[in-house]
Design a protein around this nucleic acid. Structure first.
Lengths: 164, 164
DNA sequence: CAGCTAAGCTGGACAGCGTACAGTTAGTCG
DNA sequence: CGACTAACTGTACGCTGTCCAGCTTAGCTG
């Protein structure tokens, strides 16, 4: 079902993902979907969290590099699925298990770096990643042109929040 | 018409702003709206740009402080109208005359500061402001708690993009 | 094996949406 | 006065998310 939803989104954009369109693709009555999903919101949550599950979690290395790698991987994952980024913005970042897991990893990394205000730092970095992905998704800029800009400003933020 | 639209949004949130609801409030047939507005998109564009018209444009002072003030004013304006921030995210920042004007002012400020890559810097700052406003809008955090966080991370970004 | 439960599906329906088409009215201008 | 136009109306189309009642079927239980 999630796979079908992804296919619908891939073909027609996020707006094309309606319960009825999804049911049509699955060759099923629209109502049948509600046996597997509580809401359309529920469907979107699962879809987004599923995507977050593919974010690479860095292992080892220095903490600062790990945080940078984690945020870059998140950004790249989002950019790789431009149609979904809009959905990410509509809700405020998705609260599924994968999102929680990423949040914990990020918090641990920030603590290891020595950031004083971890929740605030996490918020800044998440805003930065999702926001950049959103601008990348809907823009006419050459693909990858903003990637460099992303990394650069990510470092500005990390420099600022690191003590000393 | 824009005033009525704002009222609808203020009472029932952004989702409550439908052409029909707006027409109901104006005691008018839904179609009548299309004499004044091309699309619902057009309506939203006007609504958002109208809001941007209330952003205070700093005058005088050092360039760095002006940029900081401009972004802070933008952020505060957005936070002051939480229901509209979601609309801001849905499209990518609105392209009305007021938005253009703010963009020009921001560009001039960044150039005065000596930022090398002005377009990239502008993007970063806009993402930062809108993103923060969005998190503020949909969150349970105490109001104003993120305001300090906003200012701090804004300075991180400005520090990073300023040469030397 | 018989019987029951429950998951999964169906047809139909409701209220609401954005918006197009055609036609009517009110008001302004030459 | 006649022409023109802006603003409105009624009606309609196709779409949306979702609920309800009922059916079919797979699988477990006695």
């Amino acid at each position: 079902m999630l796979a079908a939803a992804r296919a619908v989104v891939a073909e027609g954009g996020a707006d094309a993902l309606s319960m009825r369109a999804l049911a049509r693709r699955l060759e099923v009555a629209p109502n049948a979907l509600y046996s597997h999903v509580a809401d359309k919101t529920d469907l979107l949550d699962q879809l987004l969290d599923d995507l977050l599950g593919t974010v690479a979690i860095p292992t080892g290395g220095d903490p600062r590099g790990a945080v940078e790698a984690l945020m870059t991987s998140t950004y790249e994952t989002l950019v790789g699925h431009p149609e979904l980024v809009g959905l990410f913005l509509a809700r405020q970042g998705a609260r599924g298990p994968n999102a929680v897991r990423l949040g914990e990893v990020l918090d641990a990394g920030l603590a290891a770096v020595g950031v004083p205000d971890v929740p605030a730092a996490r918020r800044v970095l998440i805003i930065h990643a999702i926001g950049f992905a959103a601008f990348d998704a809907g823009d006419v800029l050459p693909a990858g042109a903003t990637a460099h800009s992303f990394t650069r400003s990510l470092r500005w933020l990390l420099d600022g929040m690191t003590p000393g």
